[in-house]
Amino acid sequence: MDQAKNLFSIFFAAFLINNILLIRFLGLCSFFGISNHMETSIGMGTAVIFVMMISSAVSWTLYHFVLFPLHLEFLRTASFILVIAALVQLEELYIKKSLPALYRSMGIYLPLITTNCAILAVAFLNIDYNYSFIQSLVYAFGVSLGYAVVILLFAGIRERMSGAPIPKLFQGYPIAFITAALMALAFLGFTSMFGF
């Protein structure tokens, strides 16, 4: 029971309270870059959930069964990024071959994900927080779901905003940042939800 409660709090802390985009500021390049359309946001959101789960599992295993026993912790940065880059390539090949419908919806976003700092950050944080294998999977799921939900909400707002009368100086990126600020303000409201 205690363990279930622990996993539950890890999930909600990652999903809402420390939202990866609005509170922790990770993965922002893609957040501002591709959130002007609903369909692209859906594709990116699913791709992030998929890749983040798999890369967390692989990087956790790599660290605890290879790097740590061999005292090679200093290779963490180099090995994680190479493994994630290789993994994304493999996943792309696999999905293209066996799940063509999924590939059509998220195909072009898969290579972009290699440079999405949120993926690498979650791999590091799983190690820094001393999570067990199950905990790190739950954490990765919470983080990536938080990413997908926020990018969808943001894309919805930006689509509505394209027809709104915005001062000339603020058109484009400036108004997008102000919108994100208001969303971050709303997400701060979750902070005291579980007494963290």
């Binding site: 500021f25 000339k168 100086l169 603020f170 940042f177 600020a181 208001l182």
Partner: peptide, 25 residues
């Protein structure tokens, strides 16, 4: 205090970009 919380970062950079637009014009 909101300026050192996360929303402050978005607000600051939004206004800086608007300022840059103004200067460019």
């Amino acid at each position: 205090i909101v300026m050192i919380l996360p929303p402050g970062a978005f607000i600051t950079i939004g206004f800086l970009m608007a300022l840059l637009n103004k200067l460019e014009k």
